[in-house]
Design a protein around this nucleic acid. Structure first.
Lengths: 157, 157
DNA sequence: AAAGATTGAGAGATCAATCTTG
DNA sequence: CAAGATTGATCTCTCAATCTTT
């Protein structure tokens, strides 16, 4: 790796960190002021809505929403207390639990989706041409996949 | 914006979120196990080391490290208690404070830099060609700059 | 013993309110 | 009053340890 590559690589890294640090709070703020929903709650509801039967096992949901197992337990506690999801026992499997989207959860998500969609477009996709979006998918998708697979000994949880 | 653009834009957004969610904990883990330093501490020390006189005002530092004002106050409290930075009064300006890197802070940073450099390379820049890194700088840098500038009414702090 | 999920303890972050200085 | 920084209250996350089921 040449000197220039090191420099441009470092700049890419900082752009990545800074874009995240700027965009995420903007979208959280937008979502909260419009719906009172934290972004992490939104992600839980959204991932459940994408799943068949609108339900997932706790550990499947943890993987989907990019949270640790214990972090998800706390989060689901709160979202369940708010009535937007429910834990359901699974017949014939007493060590796993399903998390299901409730009717109230669906309604709340339906309010939130257009807000988030607007925020993501305004703060992120608006600046990307189709080619650039494809480049981001390829580049950052590759980063994600390699980091997940690589050096398995360092996997969390 | 066409239908395909919406889809690819959404995929780009998810890749961005997921890459961050996977890579950051990996690097935090690496840094912590090698030096005992949290990544946020590292960033504070690093930003100070880049500044002339190795010192910055609190609000300058807050901008540099991508943390809220109050978040930085707490963080500097802890780092100062550990002896790695010091607050210094500014002659002729009694409402601002300088944060300065101490000798111990420099040593600690010197240990940490190669670790972080290695982690960033392993989990991030390794997968980027020079062209791709330049694309990331251009694209995500643009996202960052527009989000910072745009819709000023929503700026935090 | 391993998988799935939860809990206790502790650290860190944010918002809104406050204090001080200019 | 505005700028700079801090504090109080609250929320959420993570790690390590634990409990239950297979």
């Amino acid at each position: 790796m040449t000197r220039d590559q090191i420099d441009i690589g470092f700049k890419a890294w900082r752009s990545f960190l800074e874009a995240h640090a700027v965009v995420i709070p903007r979208i959280e703020r937008l979502l909260d002021s419009a719906t009172g929903l934290p972004f992490t709650w939104y992600d839980v509801l959204f991932q459940l809505s994408c799943a068949p039967g609108q339900r997932l096992l706790m550990h499947e949901l943890a993987d989907a929403v990019l949270l640790s197992r214990s972090g998800l337990t706390r989060s689901v506690d709160r979202i369940e207390a708010a009535g937007l999801v429910a834990r359901e026992a699974i017949p014939g499997n007493r060590r796993s639990t399903h998390v299901v989207l409730t009717g109230a959860g669906k309604e709340r998500l339906a309010q939130a989706v257009p807000i988030v969609t607007r925020g993501v477009r305004e703060y992120f996709t608006q600046h990307l041409s189709e080619e650039e979006a494809a480049a981001v998918v390829r580049i950052l998708g590759g980063v994600r996949d390699h980091a997940r697979a690589g050096s398995g000994a360092e996997a969390p949880d």
